[in-house]
C-alpha cells in the first residue's frame, strides 16, 4: 500500500460506523429530541414575549406617549398611573439591588459556613439530619416567609426600634437570606466535597489543623464553586417576589439606610400587574421591568455557569 507522504500512515480510513436506526427508532429519538428542544423553545418564547411586550413602551400604539429609553433607565420617578405619567425604573432597580446585596451579606457567610460544616465537620449522623433540613428549608413557600416577616420582625422593629415602619430593607434581607441560604449551602457543599481526600491528607500530614486545612487548602481549591453557589443564591434572592412584596415596604425611593422601605422590581410587578389594563403604557412598562429583571438574573446565571465550568475544568 502506498500513501502520499503528506498523509500520515495512521490517518483514519474506512467508513464511519453509523448505527442503522429503524424508522420506529428514528421516530422515538425524534420525539425525545422534540421534548428537549421544547424546553429550549420556552426559554426563547419567554425572551420573545418579554421583549416584544416591553417594546410597546418605547414604540407605543398611536395616541400613547413614547417613553424615551433614558427616562426608563435613569429616571427615579415611577408614577405609572399619574396623568403626566413617568416610567423611571432606576429607583426600582436600586431597590432590588439593595435588598439583594443586603441579603447576600447574611446568606453568603451563613451559607458558606453551613456548607463547610456539612462538607468538612459534621459527622454522618448529623449530616443525615441536617441535609434534609436544609432541603426542607429551601422548600418553604416564600409566601410563608413573607408572612412571617410581616407578623414577627416588622412589629418588633416598629415597636422596639421606634421605626416608622418595620417593612424595610433589613426585614426583607433577613427573610431573603433565610430563603437563599439553603441554595448557597447545598451548592457550596458540592463544591467543597469535590476536593480530593489526597489533597486534605497532604495538608494534615504537614501538621495543619482542621481549620487551617479548611481555610488554606479546601476553600481555595473550591473557590470558584463557592462563588458559583453565592452567585446563584444572589440570583434566587433577586428574583424572589412574594417575600419582597410583603416586607420591603413598597416605597419607590433610594434607600439611605437599612431601615428605609424600598420597592424592588419584583414586588412592583406583582403588585401592579393585576390592576393594569392589557396594552396600556403601564402594562408595557411592567413588561419592561420584567425584561430588566430577566436580564439581571440571566447575567448572574451565565456568570455562575461560566465559573462552574471553570471550576470543573480545574478540578
Amino acid at each position: 500500500m502506498t500513501l502520499s507522504p503528506s498523509v500520515p500512515a495512521d490517518a483514519p480510513r474506512g467508513e464511519l460506523l453509523h448505527p442503522k436506526l429503524s424508522p420506529t427508532e428514528q421516530g422515538v429519538r425524534l420525539f425525545f429530541l422534540l421534548c428537549a428542544v421544547s424546553a429550549l423553545g420556552q426559554m426563547l418564547l419567554i425572551t420573545i414575549f418579554l421583549f416584544s411586550e416591553a417594546a410597546g413602551l418605547f414604540l407605543p400604539a398611536p395616541g400613547d406617549r413614547a417613553v424615551p429609553l433614558a427616562e426608563f433607565f435613569f429616571s427615579l420617578d415611577w408614577f405609572p398611573t399619574y396623568p403626566d405619567s413617568s416610567f423611571g425604573s432606576a429607583a426600582l432597580v436600586i431597590g432590588s439591588l439593595a435588598v439583594t446585596f443586603a441579603s447576600v451579606l447574611l446568606a453568603g457567610p451563613l451559607g458558606v459556613g453551613l456548607a463547610v460544616y456539612l462538607a468538612c465537620l459534621a459527622g454522618p449522623r448529623m449530616r443525615e439530619f441536617l441535609k434534609p433540613a436544609v432541603e426542607l428549608l429551601a422548600a418553604i413557600p416564600s409566601v410563608i416567609l413573607g408572612f412571617l416577616g410581616m407578623v414577627t420582625l416588622a412589629p418588633f422593629m416598629q415597636g422596639y426600634l421606634g421605626l416608622p415602619t418595620g417593612l424595610n430593607v433589613l426585614n426583607c434581607a433577613v427573610f431573603l437570606a433565610v430563603m437563599s441560604t439553603p441554595t448557597v449551602a447545598s451548592l457550596g457543599e458540592d463544591a467543597l466535597s469535590a476536593v480530593p481526600q489526597s489533597v486534605k491528607d497532604a495538608s494534615y500530614a504537614l501538621g495543619a489543623t482542621r481549620w487551617e486545612t479548611i481555610w488554606r487548602v479546601i476553600i481555595p481549591a473550591s473557590l470558584s464553586g463557592l462563588s458559583t453557589a453565592v452567585i446563584l443564591g444572589l440570583g434566587r434572592a433577586m428574583g424572589e417576589t412574594v417575600v419582597v412584596l410583603m416586607v420591603a415596604g413598597g416605597a419607590a425611593q433610594i434607600p439611605h439606610s437599612l431601615f428605609d422601605s424600598v420597592r424592588p422590581l419584583t414586588s412592583t410587578l406583582a403588585a401592579e400587574m393585576g390592576e393594569t389594563a392589557a396594552g396600556s403604557p403601564h402594562y408595557h412598562a411592567l413588561f419592561a421591568l420584567g425584561m430588566i429583571l430577566f436580564l439581571l438574573t440571566l447575567a448572574l446565571n451565565l456568570a455562575a455557569f461560566w465559573l462552574g465550568r471553570h471550576f470543573r475544568k480545574n478540578s
Partner: peptide
Amino acid sequence: NRMNDFVPGARLAG
C-alpha cells in the same frame, strides 16, 4: 457483534 456502533467517531475499514 457491533457493540462499537455507538462510539462517536468510530471508523472501520476491512
